[in-house]
Simulated assay, not measured.
Amino acid sequence: MRDPLGASATAEPTAPLERPAPSPLLGRPGAVEGDGADATVAAHYGDPMREQRLLTEGLAVVDLSHRGVVTVTGPDRLSWLHSLTTQQLTGLGPRASTESLVLSPKGHIEHDLHVVDDGEATWVTTEPGDAAPLTAWLNSMRFMLRVEVTDRSGDWAVIGEANAQESHPGEPLAWRDPWPGLVGDTAAYGPVEGHPAQGRAWREVLVPRAQLEEAVGDRDLAGSWASEALRVAAWRPRLGFETDHRTIPHEVDWLRTAVHLHKGCYRGQETVARVHNLGRPPRRLVFLHLDGSGHTLPAVGAAVTLGERPVGHLTSVSRHFEDGPIALALVKRNVPTDEQLDIGGVSAAQVAVVAP
C-alpha cells in the first residue's frame, strides 16, 4: 500500500520470498491491504494516526499474521540453536524471550530469530516469507542431533501489542521484544542511557491461525503503518529493511539485543569479533527527521546525499503521530553527524543511531 501522500510504506525484502495467504482480518471495516513485505495484512483501518496512539497506549493490537513461525523440538534444541546463532540460548527458561541472528560465514545478517521456549519446544517467529528458507537451512545443519525443525506458519499466527510482560502459564505463548536493552555479554553502538526506545513495550503473541479472529475479538486494530512508525521511532532495525546482503550487526546497533560476544563459535563470529575489537563498521544507521512541508516523502531505497555526494540510502520511512515524517537510513561511517542530508530534494536532520 502506498501512502496517500506518496511515500512507500514498506520496503521490498532483499530477495523474493513466498507470499503468505491474505489475513482474514482484511475483512474488518476500513481495512486497506499493505504491500511489499507487509502485503496480506492491513496497512491501516482508515485512521493511521489514531491507530498509532491506540497502539502506543496498549489499547489496540496489530495483525502480524504474515510473519513466519518455526518450531524446533527435541532435547538438543537449545544447545543446537546456540551453536548456530549469535545469542546465548543454553539455559533459556520456559516462556523466556530472546533474539538471535543467523550470519553468513563472512558475518553478514541472513536471518533474524525472535525466540521463545515453552519448555518442550523452541518457537521462532521470522520476517514474512523467511520461515521456509530458515527451516531449510536449519534442517541442513541437523546432522545427528536430536532435533526436529518444522515450519508452522500455516497453522500459527502472530499478533503484536504494546506489552512488556512475558507470557504466563495458561496464556498464549508470547515473545517479548528486548529492544533496546543490552542482553547478556554484548555491546551497544548507540546510546544506552537516553535511548528513545527506553522503556519500550512490545511483544508478539502466538495464536492458532484458525483462531486469529477470535483471539483479536472486539479489540481495536492497528495496521502495519502504525507499528512501522513506532519501530522507526525506536530505531529498531528490521531484516530486509535496515539490512542488505552485506550488513553486519554493528552497522545497525543489533549487537545490543541479539549478539553475545563471548559465547562458543558460530558462523560469522570471526567478523563480529574482529570489527568489535579492532575497528568500526563501514556504515552506520542514522535516524532522520524529514522536512514534511511537501506533499510527498522519499521512497525506501532512495539515495541519501551530502551536497552532491551520495553517502547512503533510505531504509525505512514513516509518519509518526507526534514526530511527523521520520526515517532510518544507512550512511557511510565518515559522514559528519552535524550535517544536513538530502533525499531527492527532501532535507533531513540526522541523529546518529550508531556512533561514527
Rank of each mutant, 00 (worst) to 15 (best):
T337F: 01
L26N: 10
L212T: 13
G294S: 11
A164N: 08
M144I: 07
C265T: 05
A348V: 07
A210V: 14
A9M: 08
R219E: 05
P180R: 01
E161Y: 06
G344W: 02
V116G: 11
H195C: 14
G194W: 08
S316L: 08
A229Q: 02
Q340M: 07
S318Y: 00
A7W: 15
A21R: 15
F287Y: 09
D155M: 02
G268K: 07
R246N: 07
T73W: 07
T315P: 03
P75R: 15
G160F: 01
T40I: 02
R284C: 02
A11C: 11
G181C: 04
D118E: 03
V259W: 08
P105K: 10
T315G: 06
S347V: 08
R238F: 01
H168G: 12
L84C: 01
L59T: 03
A11D: 00
W137F: 02
R2F: 01
R236E: 11
R176C: 14
L64N: 14
W235K: 01
A174E: 06
Q211G: 11
A303K: 11
W137G: 06
E148N: 04
G154C: 04
L92C: 09
A131V: 01
A273C: 08
L92I: 14
P48I: 00
D118T: 10
R28T: 14
E99G: 06
M49T: 10
R146G: 03
R309C: 08
H289F: 04
P310W: 00
E166R: 15
K332R: 12
E110T: 08
H66W: 04
H82L: 05
S65D: 03
E242L: 12
D218A: 15
V311N: 12
V32W: 00
T243S: 15
D112N: 11
L17P: 13
A9E: 12
G217Y: 08
G170E: 04
T243M: 05
D35E: 07
L25C: 13
P169T: 13
I248T: 12
R236V: 05
H262P: 02
I343G: 00
W179K: 01
N277T: 12
T56M: 07
D185S: 13
G194A: 10
N277A: 09
Q211E: 15
E308L: 06
V311R: 03
Y189G: 06
L138E: 06
S140A: 13
D342F: 01
P20G: 14
P133L: 06
P13H: 13
L5K: 03
A349T: 13
Q198L: 05
S23C: 15
E213S: 11
P13R: 09
L288V: 05
G344A: 13
A37Q: 06
F241Y: 15
T10L: 02
A60L: 04
L54W: 12
V62F: 02
D47H: 10
G129K: 09
A43I: 00
E120V: 11
V149T: 04
Q211A: 14
G119C: 07
P13F: 12
P310L: 07
V354T: 09
Q165I: 03
G30I: 13
G74M: 10
V346M: 00
A121C: 03
V272C: 01
V116Y: 07
A121M: 06
S224D: 11
G68Y: 08
A37N: 05
T10K: 01
S8A: 07
G199V: 12
S83Y: 05
E322C: 04
R219L: 08
V300P: 02
Y266S: 10
A349G: 13
P180K: 00
L278C: 04
T257R: 10
S97R: 10
